[in-house]
Design a protein around this nucleic acid. Sequence first.
DNA 1: GGGCTTTGTTCGATCATCGACAGAAGTACG
DNA 2: CGTACTTCTGTCGATGATCGAACAAAGCCC
Lengths: 385, 385
Amino acid sequence: MTPAPGSPGDVLTLISAGSATTRSDLARLTGLARSTISQRVDALIERGLVEETESGESTGGRPPRQLRLHTEEHAFAGVDLGATHCRIALMDMSGDVLAECEDSLLIEEGPETVLAHVDGRLDRLLAEAGRPRAALRAIGMGVPGPVEFATGRPNNPPIMPGWNEYPIPEYFGGTAVLVDNDVNVMALGEHRNAFGDIRHLLFVKVGTGIGCGIVAEGTLHRGAQGSAGDIGHIRVNGHEEAGCRCGNSACLEAVAGGAAVARRLTELGVAAESGADVVALVQAGNTQALRLVREAGRLIGEVLASLVNFFNPEVIVIGGALSRVHEHLLAGIRETVYRRSLPLATHHLSIVPSRMGINAAALGAGILAIEHYLSPDNINRIVNA
Amino acid sequence: MTPAPGSPGDVLTLISAGSATTRSDLARLTGLARSTISQRVDALIERGLVEETESGESTGGRPPRQLRLHTEEHAFAGVDLGATHCRIALMDMSGDVLAECEDSLLIEEGPETVLAHVDGRLDRLLAEAGRPRAALRAIGMGVPGPVEFATGRPNNPPIMPGWNEYPIPEYFGGTAVLVDNDVNVMALGEHRNAFGDIRHLLFVKVGTGIGCGIVAEGTLHRGAQGSAGDIGHIRVNGHEEAGCRCGNSACLEAVAGGAAVARRLTELGVAAESGADVVALVQAGNTQALRLVREAGRLIGEVLASLVNFFNPEVIVIGGALSRVHEHLLAGIRETVYRRSLPLATHHLSIVPSRMGINAAALGAGILAIEHYLSPDNINRIVNA
DNA sequence: GGGCTTTGTTCGATCATCGACAGAAGTACG
DNA sequence: CGTACTTCTGTCGATGATCGAACAAAGCCC
């Protein structure tokens, strides 16, 4: 994955990526001498970052001692804040979930209330996992709105009253807190768990609104103002009648979002209020709902066709509430994308449903926290301290 | 620009970027000891990569000796191959042009003919600049079609018959040859010469066709198959009647490209065959042409509005033949983008005409070659040899 | 049990880097 | 005009990281 670096903290990166599980592997991958590797691994073990497990299988000689991230003593939290829910996953350093929870919680109650709730849940989850608060190394958080990633402040979020410019990291004192848009952390979760070797990936969340997380060269592309991926307000053909909350008309999410599909169903005499209702109707076999979901897929596909030409990704992952009925949504999307995009761009393109489902955001947020902690710079700092 | 690395070849990167012009600068920027810097600079001077110029101005003590890239002894070529032309710029290591040439040349004559022409011109330009062929360190080349960058082979280019899969680098023997799409090298040229500190930039070429070069995190984004930026075949609203050479209808370049505008003018009774004719008509004050160019700008703006939401660039540069009448084209583009994109994304967005004009491609291709040669890996290899 | 292979550690040698010093080349000022 | 001061650059011994070789450990194969 990584080329072949030689600096100190890079050793840990290789271990965490699973590229190397023994000292010999490390020596081969980094080009450093075995003795040097041993010395570095010792330092990492001493700091509690790496542990040795039982010996592996021999390949004809002395069996190598397996190395892995130290899964005790450290903990990381991934927080998924939605408009009406809060999910938290407590993870160890290798990304395995130690404990998790899910609550109904209105984000519009404002940062103090919501973050106090999160803080309380963190204590409970840590207790459940039997780790002290001090073991919590970093917190990742996905929120439903644009965020200035560097400072962790929401940037004029439309559905988060009271959160504008609120400095979320400061609420948690000294603990490192990484805050990002929810779609971005979902994209990250999906990429790291299921598509680690894919370089360019799009994650499209189809829920009440529609958003997109962009992975370019394996890292999140956030854009100049951190608003990249906001595809919900791209104009689609021939729906000028559909007004959008943003003030324009014919926005993608005003014609193909969960709320829009529900409204159209209601107009046809089938009662539906939200994307969840739509999903229920489709699962119950309602043909009108099924047809409209597929039609929504076509509209989304039309926008994605443009983005495929522009960005040329290898994989597009479809997630969000509506993707629970992904067969129909995907059929519509695929139909349009493969017809409207250039052959060169679609030839090796896969369009697949989310593999992480409802957990993508919390897991992705946790991964954001873990990767921050395991970044070579941070590790070098810890080891040299 | 670069964070604060400490490895050997990075010193040269700082010098070439203009971030450091003296040994003291280098020590401050890299954090290395002054003695270490001196030693490295000596090595670079000995290899002929860096030279000392006359002393700079004193700031109260001994004046520092200025360092810069060694501009003699090395040469780089930037080759801009279009459908009907060939421009070559011979440059020194700092990107200054030593000699250039421009010829009419049909790319459809095939690789052997065209590359032989290029090779001959290279010899002439080198002679003009008084440097031996051996001084030519690398060649960058932009071609009008998709390219597999890693191997330098065109990938099913529509307007380059005979070039498919042709291994261009092999034609030039041992010299390093970097081949890329022409729009990509234009984007690179524009970025490096005029927008070096911008992280995310789009370069849009409006000529007979329409294409886009993407700079993300300061580097070219080529996509999974190297076809990223192919925005000419994105569908636009309400022009289903316009058939495109790609087989679809309502493609952006079928309604707003130079050829399309010329065709529409002809339909209105104003004779025009190509984008160049359109430009001439606009410059002559023809109001029909002016109106259609502005209308083309609006259509392009509609597509760009989507891409701004998706990619969130800081700057969009408009280039290509039609941009010679950029006031009108830009007016149309700006009008639509600022109306249809999200405020957060447009707030700090600039949409500007190309500063490099017709030279963008050749210069960008040359920069591709220079940056390849000056990459830390390559420099370390040279110094340690 | 005795080769054989692979892994991991120990230890002296080597090389890059550092810090302190001295010299170089200017300015500021009496 | 000379002296103090500042800033830049090269030299040199000390230090610390890295390496390679030798050695010990731990398995397999016969």
